[in-house]
Amino acid sequence: MPQPSASLESPIRAALSTVDDPEINRPITELGMVESVTVSEAGVVAVRVLLTVSGCPMKDKLTRDVTAAVSRVDGVTGVQVELGVMSDAQRTELRTKLRGDAPANEIPFAQPGSRTRVYAVASGKGGVGKSSVTVNIAAALAAKGLSVGVVDADIYGFSVPRMLGVTGKPTQVDQMIMPPSAHDVKVISIGMFTPGNTAVVWRGPMLHRALQQFLADVFWGDLDVLLMDLPPGTGDIAISVAQLVPAAELLVVTTPQLAAREVAERAGSIALQTHQQIVGVVENMSWLDMPDGSRMELFGSGGGQAVADSLAASTGTRVPLLGQIPIDQTVREGGDSGAPVVLTAPDSPAAQALNAVAETLAARSRSLVGRSLGLTPSR
Rank of each mutant, 00 (worst) to 15 (best):
V44M: 03
A142C: 12
T255F: 07
S36C: 00
P326L: 01
G126R: 13
I155F: 06
M192Q: 10
G32R: 12
Q305W: 03
L51W: 05
I28M: 01
D347K: 14
R371S: 14
V369H: 04
R162I: 14
P232K: 12
F299L: 15
P320A: 13
V150L: 08
L244V: 08
V73W: 04
D60K: 02
V225H: 15
A362C: 12
A182C: 01
S17M: 06
T274C: 04
N105P: 05
V121Y: 02
Q243D: 07
A89R: 11
T194L: 08
A238L: 10
P11W: 03
P246N: 10
I270Q: 10
L322T: 01
V19Y: 07
T167H: 02
A110F: 06
S7W: 09
F158N: 09
G168I: 06
V201W: 04
G293D: 10
L83R: 00
L227C: 12
M228H: 07
P340G: 15
G280C: 15
T67L: 03
T274I: 09
T255M: 05
R91G: 13
P231A: 14
A264G: 07
P179T: 05
A110R: 13
S40F: 09
D184E: 04
A350R: 13
M176K: 07
A260T: 05
L164S: 09
L311C: 11
R72H: 05
T63S: 01
G370C: 12
V225W: 15
F219M: 10
C56M: 13
F219V: 13
Q172T: 11
R209S: 12
S147Q: 12
V166C: 11
S123D: 13
R318G: 01
A267G: 03
T96W: 00
E359Q: 15
S17A: 11
F158M: 04
V241T: 10
D217Q: 13
V341F: 15
Q273F: 11
L16E: 03
K169H: 10
E106R: 08
V70T: 01
Q243R: 14
D347S: 15
G124R: 05
A306H: 06
P180N: 02
L62K: 03
A271T: 08
R295V: 08
L272E: 01
D154L: 03
V341W: 11
R203V: 15
V66S: 01
Q172E: 12
R48Y: 00
P326D: 03
G335R: 09
Q3T: 11
S159R: 09
V187K: 02
G323S: 07
V66I: 05
P195N: 09
N355K: 15
V342W: 10
V201Q: 03
Y156K: 10
M1K: 06
A345V: 05
N105I: 00
V34E: 00
G303K: 14
M86D: 09
H275V: 14
D347L: 05
M192S: 01
R209Y: 04
R95N: 06
A120V: 14
A306D: 11
F219L: 08
C56N: 07
E30F: 08
A259K: 07
S348C: 13
M163N: 10
M178R: 06
N25Q: 08
T63G: 00
Q3P: 09
V151G: 08
L31W: 02
T116V: 12
L373D: 15
T29P: 03
P291Y: 12
V185K: 00
A312F: 07
G300V: 07
